[in-house]
Design a protein around this nucleic acid. Structure first.
Length: 491
DNA sequence: GTCCGAATAT
DNA sequence: TATATTCGGA
């Protein structure tokens, strides 16, 4: 009745056609599960009573690959009886009731997993894993036999999951405003450790429950509360493919740190019921204590900067920034951490800027953003020139991220100082930084190649980069002429 | 109890 | 280096 590795190796469309025995007294629940399973091309045989199921198993053992058995609230004997009698069949227990002792008993009796109802498609989709696991843990399997058909079909099945959960780096860039959370580790397709193989969020959750909670007399354990931040603004995290903006693309949600108090709990907001991500997280314990990292993509950082800008640097605190950013799944701690770095960058850069180099720089800044100091760049953008047009469309430098308030889309607010200037098309402002820190800020006429004396300049050149970038912007200025630009302002 | 932010850890 | 986590203080 159980699949062997050989069976799998010849199973072309695995797990399509997987035969599932469903034992559930609740006809509505059974119908719902059956429908979901069938939508995945599984073949479902529903039974209301364990005796019927057991007799079907004994008469047609080859008819089933895996069983899903409901554990009732009151009378579990039938379920347990089935478990005991159908030891060869990978059996997943499921229930609305979440009691540690019941779960323990199920597992002890040989259940491969205990799933909490309702059974999402993600959970159901993964039931095949137990078939594979069992197939390869029966011993005597010929593992040298090629499993390509299985592998291929599984890859095609898993592909959407992987894509949804783990966008490529490049993809994250394309998704404006999307926050990408990277999982720390990859998960193995099939685990080779002790049976049963954990596969779904439930098991992991169960494991955690076992670790730090007791069975509270059949009270349903709700994680939702834990997953929300204390202010009640918790939003769910999209764990499926994320073209939507303002949401976390959580590859793999992770159980929160056990000892973490409710406060400051990040709202990774992963719905434990609907997160295949959690399902695929391999090991409990310490590995799970780490949260997913937030990838501060240029888009995300831009939102951050805009929020800071809107609040003003002095008023910019994590909670308010978070509010303004409106990015689902982003936590206050994420923002706080980023804000810390952001401030440190500013702190390191501003003093150097403020003193000697170019006293007038502040005036130039004030044209764009009164009271907003010039920004630095993230360290990884050192040695890059970051030009942007002072007018017109924002500069989209695909790999360069402006690290500051004015970095993106410098708001142009003509001031008296600029009124006498001719139309500014062809001008650009440039900020560059070399390894010694922030260095360059200039504005010039890219048409004539002559710096405008009416514009403040603060230039310490990094010729190679300037050359490249100026070329990029169609600027004909030579390095020499750039070097001649002084910090000055004349009218 | 919650938040902030610097310090520290990963 | 980037980000998460910790921890003391407000």
């Amino acid at each position: 009745m159980v699949c062997t590795a050989n069976d799998l190796s010849e199973w072309k469309d695995f797990p399509k056609g997987l035969r599932v025995l469903l034992l559930d007294e609740d006809t509505n629940s059974a119908a719902e599960i059956k429908s979901k399973l069938e939508s995945m091309d599984y073949i479902v045989y529903t039974f209301r009573h364990e005796n019927e199921a057991l007799s079907a198993i004994s008469s047609r053992p080859e008819s089933f690959h895996v069983a899903i058995v409901e554990v009732g609230a009151s009378n579990n004997n039938g379920s347990f009886k089935f478990l005991e009698m159908a030891k060869d069949l990978p059996t997943i227990m499921t229930s609305n009731i979440h009691c540690i002792s019941t779960m323990v008993k199920c597992i002890a009796l040989g259940a491969v997993e205990f799933l909490r109802k309702p059974l999402s498609e993600d959970k159901l989709r993964n039931v095949w894993q137990h078939v594979v696991h069992k197939a390869f843990n029966r011993g005597g399997n010929d593992l040298t036999k090629p499993l390509k058909p299985v592998k291929d079909s599984l890859v095609s099945i898993l592909q959407p999951q992987l894509e949804n959960g783990k966008p490529r780096k490049g993809d994250s860039k394309k998704t404006e405003g999307a926050l990408v959370v990277h999982q720390n580790d990859h998960e193995p397709l099939a685990r080779n450790d002790k049976y049963p193989a954990p596969s779904t969020p439930q098991l992991e959750q169960g494991g955690r429950l076992l670790d730090d909670r007791d069975c509270h007399d059949h009270t349903n354990y709700s994680e939702e509360k834990e997953n929300g931040e204390q202010d009640g603004k918790a939003k769910s995290v999209e764990t499926t493919s994320g073209n939507r903006t303002n949401e976390v693309n959580a590859t793999v949600g992770q159980p929160q740190e056990q000892r973490e108090t409710k406060r400051d709990r990040p709202l990774n907001g992963v719905d434990p019921e609907d997160s295949r991500a959690v399902a695929e997280k391999p090991s409990p314990n310490k590995a799970n204590r780490k949260k997913s990292k937030v990838d501060w993509t240029p888009e995300l950082h831009k939102k951050f900067v805009e929020a800071v800008d809107q609040l003003g640097i002095d008023q910019a605190i994590p909670s308010r920034i978070l509010e303004l950013m409106k990015v689902e799944g982003l936590t206050r701690q994420n923002v706080a951490s980023h804000l810390q770095k952001y401030r440190m960058q500013r702190r390191h850069i501003l003093p150097k800027e403020d003193d000697r180099k170019c006293p007038q720089r502040h005036r130039l800044q004030s044209y764009n953003h009164p009271n907003k100091p010039i920004m630095a760049f993230p360290p990884y953008y050192l040695n890059h020139v970051v030009p942007y047009p002072m007018l017109g469309a924002p500069c989209h430098s695909p790999t360069i991220q402006m690290w500051g308030v004015q970095g993106y889309y410098p708001p142009w607010q003509p001031t008296e100082s600029w009124h006498f200037l001719p139309p500014l098309q062809g001008y650009f402002s440039m900020f560059t930084q070399n390894s010694t820190g922030f260095r360059c800020c200039c504005a010039m006429d890219t048409r004539s190649g002559v710096s405008r004396t009416c514009v403040e300049h603060h230039v310490v050149l990094n010729p190679p980069f300037l050359g490249l970038e100026l070329l990029h912007w169609g600027c004909k200025l030579t390095h020499t002429s750039l070097c001649l630009i002084e910090c000055r302002k004349k009218r």
